[in-house]
Amino acid sequence: MGAELRWQKSSFSGASGENCLEIAGVPGRLLIRESDMPGTVLAASRAALAGLVAGVKAGEFDRQGGSGRR
Score class of each variant (00 low, 15 high):
1 M>V: 09
2 G>N: 13
2 G>K: 09
3 A>G: 14
3 A>S: 13
4 E>M: 05
4 E>Q: 10
4 E>A: 14
5 L>E: 03
5 L>S: 00
5 L>Q: 01
5 L>P: 07
6 R>V: 10
7 W>D: 00
7 W>K: 01
8 Q>Y: 13
8 Q>P: 07
10 S>W: 07
11 S>K: 07
12 F>R: 13
12 F>A: 12
12 F>E: 08
13 S>L: 10
13 S>H: 09
13 S>F: 05
14 G>N: 14
14 G>Q: 13
14 G>F: 12
15 A>C: 09
15 A>R: 15
16 S>C: 15
17 G>E: 05
18 E>R: 15
18 E>H: 15
19 N>K: 13
19 N>S: 13
20 C>M: 12
21 L>W: 08
21 L>N: 01
21 L>H: 10
21 L>R: 07
21 L>K: 09
22 E>M: 06
23 I>K: 06
24 A>K: 02
24 A>I: 03
24 A>Y: 03
24 A>S: 08
24 A>P: 04
24 A>C: 06
25 G>T: 15
26 V>N: 08
26 V>G: 04
27 P>G: 14
29 R>S: 11
29 R>Y: 08
29 R>H: 09
29 R>I: 10
30 L>E: 02
30 L>D: 08
31 L>N: 02
32 I>C: 02
33 R>H: 01
34 E>I: 04
35 S>I: 06
35 S>K: 01
35 S>T: 02
35 S>E: 01
35 S>M: 06
36 D>H: 09
37 M>I: 12
37 M>Q: 14
39 G>H: 04
39 G>Q: 10
39 G>T: 03
40 T>W: 11
40 T>K: 06
41 V>T: 09
41 V>N: 05
41 V>E: 01
42 L>E: 03
42 L>R: 05
42 L>P: 00
42 L>F: 02
43 A>C: 06
43 A>V: 03
43 A>H: 14
43 A>I: 05
45 S>T: 07
45 S>F: 02
47 A>K: 11
47 A>E: 12
47 A>T: 13
47 A>I: 08
48 A>K: 14
50 A>M: 06
50 A>C: 11
50 A>R: 15
51 G>S: 02
52 L>G: 00
52 L>R: 02
52 L>W: 00
53 V>Y: 04
54 A>C: 14
54 A>R: 10
55 G>P: 05
56 V>R: 01
56 V>M: 04
57 K>D: 02
57 K>I: 06
58 A>D: 04
59 G>T: 06
59 G>V: 02
60 E>S: 09
60 E>G: 00
60 E>N: 15
60 E>K: 07
60 E>Q: 11
60 E>I: 00
61 F>K: 02
62 D>T: 10
62 D>V: 05
63 R>F: 11
63 R>P: 09
64 Q>N: 11
65 G>Y: 05
65 G>K: 14
66 G>F: 00
66 G>H: 00
67 S>A: 08
68 G>W: 02
68 G>D: 00
